[in-house]
Design a protein around this nucleic acid. Sequence first.
DNA 1: GCCAAGAGTTGCGGTCAGTGCAAAACCAGG
DNA 2: CCTGGTTTTGCACTGACCGCAACTCTTGGC
Lengths: 269, 269
Amino acid sequence: MSDKPPAPSAGLRRDMDILEVLAGHGDDRDADGFGVSWIAERLGREKSQISRALRALELEGMVERDPVTRRYRLGWRLFALAARTQQARLVRVAAPYLRRLAGAFDEDAYLCVLRGNQVLTLLSVPSSRAYHRVWEGISVPVIMAAAGRSLLAEWDEERVRALLRTVLPSGLDSAVASEDDWLADLAHVRSAGYAVSDVELEDSAAGVSAPVRDHRGLITAAISVSVIRAPAPERLHEMGAVVAEVARELSAALGYPATPAAGTWKSPA
Amino acid sequence: MSDKPPAPSAGLRRDMDILEVLAGHGDDRDADGFGVSWIAERLGREKSQISRALRALELEGMVERDPVTRRYRLGWRLFALAARTQQARLVRVAAPYLRRLAGAFDEDAYLCVLRGNQVLTLLSVPSSRAYHRVWEGISVPVIMAAAGRSLLAEWDEERVRALLRTVLPSGLDSAVASEDDWLADLAHVRSAGYAVSDVELEDSAAGVSAPVRDHRGLITAAISVSVIRAPAPERLHEMGAVVAEVARELSAALGYPATPAAGTWKSPA
DNA sequence: GCCAAGAGTTGCGGTCAGTGCAAAACCAGG
DNA sequence: CCTGGTTTTGCACTGACCGCAACTCTTGGC
């Protein structure tokens, strides 16, 4: 057998795989959880192993079992732990600002961070429109997310190119063009304080985003507002200015000292 | 050594202990994380073990290491997983209702569920008052939380007594009195639809709470509003009626069919 | 800038916990 | 009561984890 690297921490790996399966797609249809055999088959492991692992995980509260259907789903402990995360703090502080944005434009508003070459959405505030796809806890490639440009704004060129190459198929002309476009966009974020993204790929709508800085001045997150029906360019830039301003206030709330135009303090709605 | 039950899933246990330590008290002071040695000492384990475990956990995104201070804290993966939890769904639906409550009374509003003999706070919405203790992800004993009565409202008497005995010191007269008081309060919840809790123990403020039902009609959660300065009793009951009404609307939003007085649909603010 | 103390990592053998197979128990429907 | 499926349990084997100790890296004092 070729694939026999004596994996350290095999147990953890198995448990994480299980949790990942239980996470499903977050759709409502897998709300009632999954059975042991199904998980075992999905992971190509022994049922007995899964059964035992799940029991242990249940004991720790990482998963919980529906007493009637006997199916497993993610447990309360995850929720409790997640609440103590750095990201949770960020969400708590940012929520009012995002709501203000969502209310002002009646568009969905998002808070995102960078995770590897993906953009992880930490919080999404729906507009008043009927249906709202839940993006929380979901990662999408940097290039697809509206917030991607804001998050990479202050990276140096080499690292950005390197990162993009891990995502884009290398060698294509379109890819090279994308790279250059991207670097230009990043410059725009640095100068104007916000990014405007056209509709890029099938699933991602266009959007306006702006970087959020922590107490050290580093860009650690980005807020963005989706734009469903493409408005006039000027309108987009108006929105950009507002988003950038909110991002600045949020940064200040996170401890970022320099507020260039130190005007009156606006408390979040 | 007496305590040597050949523990199955020792690895998971160790990992969970580590995560629990990293969770800390959720205070701001442990925001920058903890070092390997400190954790090792706290858990009474070998440094090497902790070091290796943390590396594995970091690989899985369960913890992350500050690149500059080299300290560990809880990772983004927890956040992503928690977002797919049953509890997260509940929070998403309930948030607007809680905000409405918090706004109406200008008091902190909470969403809680039952976990063993503890009440786990899933979401807390602060009032406009200056400081707000973050309760999310924190468990407190049933008897202390304002929401406790609402959560137990429809249990049968025996189970309630059994549960209370796991919390209260058995045999004391005060405990027996508490038990009877509790059962009376539960009856009140069933008839009036809300519970009023006096200030009970040092840390918990008084509050008004009401049960929330899922699509099967079972009480799966409770919402509550804190009451800092004890108002007149009538005022408390006015508040109770409002909280109960909001809880009913929330239950309906969760799929609970019967809306006794099926009036006009109020969308959450 | 150097040195020392502390913090974190790595190598290594013995041991025990997890793996996998197969059989038993369980559960839901007919 | 039997039959299909699903989940749990028994048990022997093996390789992954534990703990010790040596090593390296980081930090802070002088």
